[in-house]
C-alpha cells in the first residue's frame, strides 16, 4: 500500500497486466514519443504521461506508437483483439471519437454479435474526458453516454486512483470492448492504493456516503464535487447517500434502487450534457422502476445544453459545482 496518483495507479495497472499477459499491447499516439526523432526515446510517455517508462520495460513491439490515424489505429486494435491479442488503445481525447466512430461504435461494439458469437473482442480503449482546463469545445467533453448507447461496449468512469487501477485491470482482462474514461483533472489526485494487482468487478457501484435523506448519484470527477456538497449539506442536517456507479455499462441499478427505495429522492450529477446523457438515462430508469418510491421529482445537475467554452469564467459556469448540487438537494427536500 502506498500513496499513488490516479495517473500512477493507471500506469501500474498497465504494467501489471503487461507483465501478466504477453498478449497485452499498447497502441496510441506518443505512448512513448520520440520515435524517429534525434532526441530522447520515451520523450513523452503518453500525451498525459500515463505510459511513461513502459516502453523501456516492454519494448516498442508492445508499446506501439501510431501516426495521427485514429481510425486506422483503433481499427487495428479491434482487428488485433478479434485475432486474440488484448490491445489497450489510447484515444487521446474522447472528443476525437469523431474520426474513429466506425471503429468503435460499429466494429468493436458489434463484432461479436454480427458474427453470431464466433469471436470476442477483448479490447480496452483508454480515453480522457472532462472540462476544466480551458481547452475549449473539442478537447473538454465528457462523451461516455455516447459509448453507453451502444450495446456491446462496456464503459468505465473511475473517480479515484484505487478504482482506476482495479477497474483498468478488469477492463484489460474482460473479453469485451471496454471504453475506459479517465478524467484529466483527476490525474493528480492521490490516495492509498495497494501495490499489488487487484481487480474490481464491473457493474458494482461504490457507496461513497450513507445518509438516508437523499440519493445523490455522481460520476467521474463529479463524485468529488458531489462529496463536497454532501459534506456541506450534512452540516445543515441533510444526510445524503452518495453513489458512484463507476461503470455506466454495466450499470448497477440495484444499488441506486436500494438507496432510492429508502430516500425517495434522487439527484443525479453528471458532467455529460443534459440531453441523452447518463443523468437522463438513470432518471428514466428510476422513474420507470421506482415511481412509487419517489417523494419528489428526480433532479439532474448537468452542464447546460451548450458546447464547452474555453474562457475560464464561462467554463466555470458550464461545469456543475457544489452549490448547484446543494440547491438541487434542497429542492427535492422541500417536497
Amino acid at each position: 500500500m502506498s500513496v499513488k496518483s490516479y495517473r500512477a495507479a493507471i500506469r501500474e495497472a498497465l504494467e501489471h497486466e503487461m507483465q501478466r499477459d504477453p498478449d497485452v499491447v499498447l497502441i496510441g499516439q506518443d505512448l512513448a514519443g520520440g520515435a524517429g526523432g534525434g532526441g530522447e526515446d520515451d520523450a513523452w510517455g503518453g500525451p498525459m504521461a500515463v505510459t511513461k517508462g513502459l516502453v523501456g520495460k516492454f519494448g516498442r513491439e508492445r508499446v506501439l506508437d501510431t501516426p495521427v490515424s485514429e481510425a486506422a489505429s483503433i481499427g487495428a486494435a479491434v482487428g488485433a483483439a478479434a485475432a486474440g491479442l488484448r490491445p489497450v488503445a489510447e484515444l487521446m481525447f474522447c472528443d476525437f471519437i469523431g474520426v474513429c466512430c466506425d471503429q468503435i461504435l460499429n466494429q468493436a461494439a458489434k463484432y461479436r454479435y454480427t458474427f453470431g458469437g464466433q469471436d470476442q473482442v477483448p479490447l480496452t480503449i483508454r480515453t480522457t474526458i472532462g472540462a476544466g482546463q480551458q481547452l475549449g469545445s473539442q478537447h473538454s467533453q465528457a462523451l461516455y453516454p455516447l459509448f453507453s448507447y451502444f450495446p456491446g461496449l462496456k464503459v468505465v468512469v473511475p473517480a479515484t486512483a484505487y478504482d482506476a487501477k482495479g477497474l483498468l485491470a478488469t477492463a484489460i482482462r474482460d473479453n469485451d470492448p471496454v471504453i475506459f474514461c479517465e478524467h484529466r483533472l483527476l490525474y493528480r489526485l492521490r490516495e492509498d492504493v495497494p501495490d499489488e494487482s487487484y481487480t474490481i468487478p464491473f457493474g458494482e457501484a461504490r457507496i461513497v456516503e450513507e445518509g438516508g435523506d437523499v440519493t445523490v448519484v455522481a460520476l467521474s470527477r463529479m463524485v468529488h464535487v458531489a462529496a463536497e456538497a454532501v459534506r456541506a449539506l450534512r452540516e445543515d442536517g441533510i444526510d445524503c447517500d452518495l453513489i458512484d456507479p463507476r461503470t455506466t455499462t454495466p450499470l448497477d441499478t440495484d444499488t441506486i434502487f436500494d438507496s432510492v427505495e429508502a430516500t425517495g429522492r434522487l439527484v443525479i450529477v453528471d458532467e455529460a450534457g443534459p440531453r441523452c446523457g447518463t443523468a437522463s438515462d438513470i432518471a428514466a430508469i428510476v422513474a420507470e422502476e421506482m415511481f412509487n418510491a419517489l417523494r419528489a421529482p428526480i433532479r439532474r445537475v448537468t452542464p447546460p445544453y451548450a458546447p464547452v467554452p474555453a474562457a475560464p469564467e464561462l467554463e466555470r459556469s458550464y461545469v456543475p459545482d457544489a452549490s448547484r448540487i446543494i440547491a438541487a438537494v434542497r429542492s427535492v427536500m422541500e417536497r
Partner: peptide
C-alpha cells in the same frame, strides 16, 4: 473501408 484497418490488426496479431 474499415476492413483495411482491421486487417492491420490481424497482421499485428500474426
Amino acid at each position: 473501408g474499415s476492413g483495411a484497418a482491421l486487417a492491420c490488426g490481424s497482421a499485428l496479431a500474426i
